[in-house]
Nucleic acid binder design. Structure first.
Length: 594
DNA sequence: GTAGGGTTAG
């Protein structure tokens, strides 16, 4: 009687699916000792682990780990629950545990565990599952094989294994064909993807979207447009793909037009636009759109917040950045590696390194190379170069391998602090200890390092000995050093190169004129100015911004457009006067130039 | 379909 009543209650659960109700029924089961019955327990686990709220998942886990010898069904539901709740680490752990307990996985287990290994980009794990599939004789299950295809196409370095599985499939459906299309798109072989797309006996919306995003993301916007027009059906993802295609090539107008015209916008559409503004340097517009998004009551995702934080970092919008930090806590996103790193970077670029370090230490073990690099670069740009190098050493001690960007931070720290010897030590260490071949940008740091230290001859020799043809940035570094150390002779040589390589750069003639001014060559200053006029070179006006009450105010030099510009200039005069009294003189070189 | 760290000068 009791048993039947409980079973009836349980059958209602998917419709109710409230954690409170599940708990009530479970309490009842405990009272009647029914939770000894694996079937009932498994139901509870199933319903709660299917639920996507973190609370009910936590409840399901608690139940699951109390069960002594979970059966196959329990493992399956729990693995699926882990996957839905984005705990692929735990899903694979459970799979390994169930294999250890000699439970044979079935066709229900494989797709989920394959997706878990796919999430972790764990090809080795995925291969083990493949072997197990063959041993269990499920090597012809269409659903299992399709997930296997996807795992290989995501985790594999090439499409070799994927193609092999595909070709050996006794039966192929739309999804398997699409795996081949999206796999080749992922590996950047658009032509192959197109071949599979064209040869597929049937195409789903997903296939259309895969190939569309392939064209959009590789800048082949005309082909993407054509596909978009040809599509028999479109969903929000199709619109989003084309929008991000426009954003990628910097065509903001077309992206905006599409964004305004699309029938339904979701979080991804908003996020793509916001991030598109960020990537194209329109930070102010990205924040304005974020504001609009909130007025439209669209909940931002973690990805949205990552973009917004990047925007805050670039603008130095500390207050808004702090607001985002508080907002993350409020809506209950846990601060893991990505958000943590973005927060650290934001605090560092806004000049509040203490806060950045606080976030860093709160991350515990959830730190990766990118997180460490954000801290190292952050310390370097905040003038804490010793600390930056100390963090680098700690990172290595903790077994995290630095990558090429980490070394940019390290070399930047050395350059800013004048640590010439350390700079060369780390530069050599790249190849010797980490098999990283220094790129142009690393050489750029070294030229900057030598140049700032006043070792201009050495810097020039270093440039000549480089394995690449120096780019304008390299010469620009050297040129800046010539200005800093008032070296006219080398400066003129560098200018000659720069005028050939980068004739339209507005800054170079300005720097040249500064060098002349610094060495009292007034005739040449005048000549350079004349040349600037002839070429139509105008200095890009210096621009700064300040954030008050979440509004970013931008100022251009000589600007009087702001409502409170008069007060601002009065305050500036006052501050300049005080600085003079305090013995701070403005940089004479810059004064002469304007 | 959107995604965190980056070399010069200004």
């Amino acid at each position: 009687m009791e048993q039947r009543a409980t079973a009836q209650c349980l059958s209602l659960l998917p419709k109710l699916s409230s954690l409170k109700e599940v708990k009530q029924i479970h309490a009842h089961m405990i009272k009647t000792a029914l939770d000894q019955f694996p079937y009932e327990v498994s139901k509870v686990v199933e319903f709660t682990s299917l639920s996507v709220t973190p609370q009910s998942f936590a409840y399901a886990r608690e139940l699951f780990y109390r069960i002594q010898n979970p059966n196959l069904f329990l493992y399956n539901t729990m693995i699926r629950g882990c996957l839905i709740n984005k705990r692929s680490e735990e899903a694979t752990f459970l799979y390994i545990r169930m294999r250890g307990e000699n439970l044979l996985p079935n066709n229900f287990t494989f797709p989920f565990v394959l997706r878990a290994f796919e999430d972790k980009l764990d090809l080795k794990g995925g291969k083990e599952v493949h072997g197990c599939i063959l041993r269990t004789g499920l090597g012809s299950d269409l659903y299992v094989l399709t997930t296997l295809l996807n795992m290989y196409s995501v985790c594999g370095g090439s499409m070799k294994a994927t193609t092999k599985v595909f070709e050996e499939m006794p039966l192929k459906d739309v999804v398997s064909w699409n795996c081949m299309v999206s796999g080749h798109v992922r590996h950047g072989s658009l032509e192959l993807a197109r071949t599979y797309f064209d040869h597929a006996p049937a195409r789903s919306l997903v296939s259309w979207n895969s190939i569309l995003s392939g064209y959009a993301n590789s800048g082949r916007i005309e082909e993407a447009e054509r596909l978009f027009m040809e599509m028999p059906k479109k969903d929000t993802a199709s619109w989003n793909s084309l929008i991000s295609g426009y954003l990628r090539i910097g065509d903001l107008n077309s992206a905006e037009r599409l964004f305004d015209r699309m029938p339904a916008r979701d979080v991804v559409s908003w996020t793509a636009m916001i991030d598109g503004y960020v990537k194209n340097g329109h930070y102010d517009r990205s924040l304005a759109l974020f504001h609009q998004m909130q007025l439209a009551e669209i909940e931002p995702s973690e990805v949205t917040l990552l973009s917004v934080l990047t925007s805050c970092a670039s603008l130095g919008a500390l207050e808004l950045g702090k607001w985002v930090h508080a907002y993350i806590k409020k809506i209950g996103f846990s601060i893991e590696t990505n958000l943590g790193t973005a927060l650290i970077d934001m605090y560092a670029k806004c000049g509040n390194m203490e806060k950045g370090l606080e976030v860093f230490f709160n991350l515990g073990t959830k730190k990766d190379v990118i997180t460490w690099t954000a801290v190292i670069s952050g310390l370097a740009i905040n003038g804490k170069c010793r600390e930056a190098l100390e963090f680098f050493n700690r990172m290595v001690t903790e077994g995290i391998k630095p990558d090429r960007v980490t070394f940019l931070g390290v070399l930047c720290a050395c350059a800013h602090a004048g640590f010439v010897k350390d700079g060369f030590h780390y530069f050599d260490s790249m190849n010797k200890d980490y098999l990283l071949v220094p790129r142009m940008e690393h050489y750029g740091c070294m030229v900057d390092l030598l140049g700032r230290a006043g070792l201009l001859e050495e810097a020039m020799e270093f440039v000549k000995a480089m394995p690449f043809e120096p780019d304008p940035v390299i010469w620009g570094s050297l040129f800046g050093a010539c200005q800093m150390h008032k070296n006219l002779e080398l400066g003129e040589q560098v200018m000659e190169r720069l005028s050939k390589m980068d004739p339209w750069n507005k800054g170079n003639l300005v720097t040249l004129s500064n060098i002349y001014a610094a060495t009292s060559r007034w005739d040449d200053v005048a000549k350079t100015r004349k040349k600037m006029k002839e070429k139509g070179t105008r200095r890009t006006p210096g621009c700064s911004s300040i954030e008050v009450n979440f509004h970013v105010h931008e100022f251009v030099s000589g600007d009087s457009s702001h409502l409170r510009s008069k007060e601002t200039y009065e305050m500036l005069d006052l501050l300049a006067g005080r600085m003079k009294v305090a013995g701070c003189l403005p940089n004479d070189v810059l004064l002469l130039e304007d």
